[in-house]
Every structure is written in C-alpha cells, then in structure tokens.
C-alpha cells in the first residue's frame, strides 16, 4: 500500500469549502448555544416555578437524548409540522445549538450558584437591583470560574459539527466523503480530514488545559 496524498491536495478547493462550512456552523452554534444556554441557566437558577420547570424540562430532554437523533428529528420530522422545508444547515444548527444550550445552562447555573451570597448582599447594599447585581457583580466573577467548562463546550460543539454531514450539510467530513468516493482514496481523504480537525482543535484543547490550570492555581 502506497500513500498518495497528491489526490487529496488536488482537491484543496473542496476541502477549503468544507472548512468554511465547518467554521460557519461552529460559529452559529457557539453563539446560539452559549447565549440560549445563559437564558435557560437563569431559568434553572430562578425560584419562580414558571421559569424553573420549563427550563428543567428543556435541560433534561436535550441532555438525555443523543444529538444525532435531535438533528435527524429537526430535519425529517419537524418540517411535517411546518409549512416550509428546513435546510440541512438549519436542522443541524437547531440540534447542536439546543443541545449545547442544555449543557451550558448547567455550567451557567453552577457558576452563578458558586458565587457567595455576600456578593449579592453587597450589591443590594449599594442599591443595585437584581438585574444590575447579576450583570455587574455576579456574572463577571462567575464567568471566570465557568471559562474552562465553556471552552470545553466550544470544543464539543466543534466536534459535533461533523454530525451535520448526516443531513448532507457541506462541511469538512462531508467533503472528505466526496473526495474519497470520487478518487477512491479513503485512506488519504479521511486521514487528511482527521488531521485538519486535529489542527483546528488542538490549540483549543491546550487553551482549555491552560484555563483549568490557572483556575486551580487562583482558587
């Protein structure tokens, strides 16, 4: 068996298109997932039952079902209830974003709960309302503690973006499949895709290790 990466390099354009697709869905799901997660996390933290119960149901449902099932549900099942079609990008983004929102909600809730009540009392003593205290005092401190866990979520989102290929969204793995089937070179094509993912993700993973070490040292 001779390795022949030339057939992969000939398809650099296709891989670039795939990389752009991967980065696009990653960015969408990162922003949607982490911001929706904050809302759901505040709902989970709330003592108001009308916020707490729906947030809990959401979190339990999306944490306890596989993300691939969620994506396929949004792609094949949801359009039946809607008057319009759902694109592969929309279905995959919905699945990955809602799944990430459920996981990050628990990170936000844990982070907010970890802040001592004295901080709340101090903020109130200064005349801050709940929203102000949360925004100016609690969240900035909590975010520092949550940063390693949120970085890990970002890494998971990046890895999950490959599942979009199951609904034929054009991303790196999908392009790898295409190259492999056109050139009969699965070894080189899939190895190249794996290496590209490693190159993207390795710095992120090292960064998360760094954040974890720094947090341990500071606390």
């Amino acid at each position: 068996m001779r390795w022949d990466f030339a057939s992969v390099f000939d398809n650099t354009d296709a891989l670039l298109v795939g990389a752009a697709g991967t980065l696009r869905i990653f960015a969408i799901c990162l922003v949607l997932g982490l911001s929706l997660g904050l809302l759901v996390g505040l709902g989970r933290y709330s003592r108001n039952r009308w916020l707490h119960i729906p947030a809990t149901v959401f979190v339990e449902f999306f944490r306890n079902t596989p993300v691939l099932v969620q994506i396929l549900w949004f792609y094949f099942a949801l359009p039946i209830l809607l008057p319009f079609q759902i694109s592969p990008l929309a279905a995959a983004s919905l699945g990955i974003s809602l799944n990430s929102a459920a996981f990050s909600a628990e990170i936000y809730r844990g982070g907010i709960q970890s802040i001592e009540t004295g901080q709340w009392d101090g903020a109130r003593a200064l005349g801050m309302r709940w929203g102000q205290a949360m925004r100016r005092i609690i969240l900035p401190q909590a975010l520092k503690r949550m940063l390693p866990a949120l970085t890990n979520r970002a890494i998971e989102i990046f890895k999950m973006s490959t599942l979009a290929s199951a609904v034929a969204y054009v991303e790196l793995l999908q392009q790898g499949k295409l190259i492999a089937s056109l050139n009969y070179n699965p070894i080189e094509a899939y190895t190249a895709v794996a290496v590209i993912f490693f190159v993207f993700l390795w710095p992120l993973v090292q960064f998360s290790y760094f954040l974890e070490r720094r947090l341990r040292r500071d606390e």
């Binding site: 068996m1 490959t162 790898g176 899939y190 390795w202």
Partner: peptide, 17 residues
C-alpha cells in the same frame, strides 16, 4: 481531540484498506 464521527469513518473506510 478529533470528532468521533471522523474516527468512525476512518476505521470503517480507511483502515480496512
């Protein structure tokens, strides 16, 4: 550090060859 689906495809399509 690599996505599980990429690993699965590698083991299923690439390794046998």
């Amino acid at each position: 550090t690599t996505p599980p689906l990429v690993q699965l495809f590698w083991f299923f399509f690439a390794l046998p060859i």
